[in-house]
Design a protein around this nucleic acid. Structure first.
Lengths: 250, 250
DNA sequence: TCATATAAGGTTATCAGACAACCCTACAAG
DNA sequence: CTTGTAGGGTTGTCTGATAACCTTATATGA
């Protein structure tokens, strides 16, 4: 919308790029500026970025720095580069890595969406864990439960242990992707709650839900996937209610 | 005389379809190797990585490439660098982005794990889509179904349409994270099948499953989440069976 | 005229070497 | 014993060059 047609030849004004001040991690700052241009739509998807040479002159840095900045953007999926052609802003659909800006989660609707995503993953993970857990998995679960109900229950340790418990359930599935995705999602959720200064709420959750965690552990140990799923479902629904989150269950 | 860049093997004229990956972005490959070392624990968290100079000699590439690889790992949160000191591996918990190396999916067990992760997400998404879909969502679904059963059924278009269908179901949940995660996972799976040169199988899947897709669409349109979930579950289980994938269902 | 081959110029990818900024350690000076 | 400093090592940045690749225009031959 903002005159995207000038990337072809003799671009008059690349953008409102300002000269970089030295001091700390040049590539990251330049990547930030370019990324902002893309995120805010001033560089449309599919549009070609200025050449590295031109960018280096524009920012007043060497081409190495520009290259590293573009590499970072490419890694985040915001741009694609084609040798001999140039760098292009990508469609949102094609991004090949998942990244969640923590700021987004301050929005309650967004937070709820992430929790709603977590729900089926945790439930399925509990079921798979019931089928595939090893003796070591159970040992680790018990150890973590001990930390949760231990003397340091009211410190951050309890919260860390809660996170660790769910991570270990995911690990017990023996499925690397459950560990990867659930670890990622659960961590975002915990961080969001933490950032919202609702740690008191979290501690309360930890206290109330020790019994629920034990139930999950026992269900997994029993090897009954249905029982494990139900235990995890009850736990998560309860946890959501305790932070006034209304989920859709069916 | 020891130029490692051109120290390749003699050109083999046989049709050996092993990837030569000459244009496969050197830094990404090196980042993958180093990242693997970290993920699999051969480089412990907190441990110092070899110096850039040593790495460049080890891999036989220039320092620029190694730097770009390390920058990528830093961006993914796997390493932290301190000027004048070195690069250090970080804890797994710290990672703030998810990335799946496509190579891993050539391994059938790994591919199955990803499919097993996709299962509950797709099912839940179908249920949520039944509740939250808009008129526009249904229109897009119908349009995509038309492309699947159209004349270009046997081209890549049919496969693209299949992917688009599932993406639109995810979009119909009105939950950005379902779109983000499912789009990501489903795309990996399709790429893996494609890379395995099983496109013929995929096309067969598309043909057989048009009816199943229509059933999913109708169930979503009916607004009954349970029905939508069942339709999606049947479809995915069938799709898995058609590529000889045995999933755990409960 | 039309299709193909070739040349030219631009862009990214990689290389090589150098210097700057910064950190750590050890050792000398007080 | 404390302090200062010199030295070496590492990452950060710069500069210039070459290779690989793409696009476009021109030439060539039927």
């Amino acid at each position: 919308m903002t005159n995207p047609g000038h990337a072809n030849k003799a671009n008059v004004t690349v953008a409102d790029f300002i000269q970089i001040r030295r001091g700390e991690h040049l590539p990251a700052r330049i990547a930030g500026q370019i990324g902002k241009e893309i995120s805010e739509g001033r560089i449309a998807p599919g549009e070609k970025l200025p050449t590295e040479h031109l960018l280096s002159k524009t920012f007043g840095v060497s081409r190495s720095v520009v290259r590293e900045a573009i590499a970072q953007l490419r890694n985040e999926g915001l741009v694609e580069t084609r040798q001999g052609v140039g760098a292009f802003a990508t469609d949102v659909e094609r991004r090949h890595s998942i990244r969640i800006e923590q700021d987004n989660l301050t929005d309650r609707a967004s937070f709820r969406s992430l929790f709603q995503l977590r729900l089926p993953l945790e439930i399925e993970a509990a079921g798979l864990a019931a089928l595939h857990h090893t003796v070591e998995d159970l040992t680790k679960l018990d150890e973590t439960l001990g930390r949760m109900s231990g003397a340091d229950k009211w410190t951050d340790q309890g919260i860390v242990a809660d996170l660790a418990f769910h991570r270990q359930v995911a690990a017990a599935t023996q499925n690397e992707y459950y560990l990867m995705f659930l670890g990622f999602v659960a961590e975002r959720i915990h961080l969001a709650i933490h950032a919202a200064r609702e740690t008191a709420v979290l501690e309360q959750i930890v206290e109330i839900t020790i019994a629920e965690h034990v139930a999950i552990r026992d269900a997994i140990a029993s090897g009954d996937p249905v029982k494990a799923r139900n235990a995890m479902r009850s736990h998560l629904i309860g946890a959501a209610q305790r932070i006034d989150l209304e989920l859709e269950i069916f």
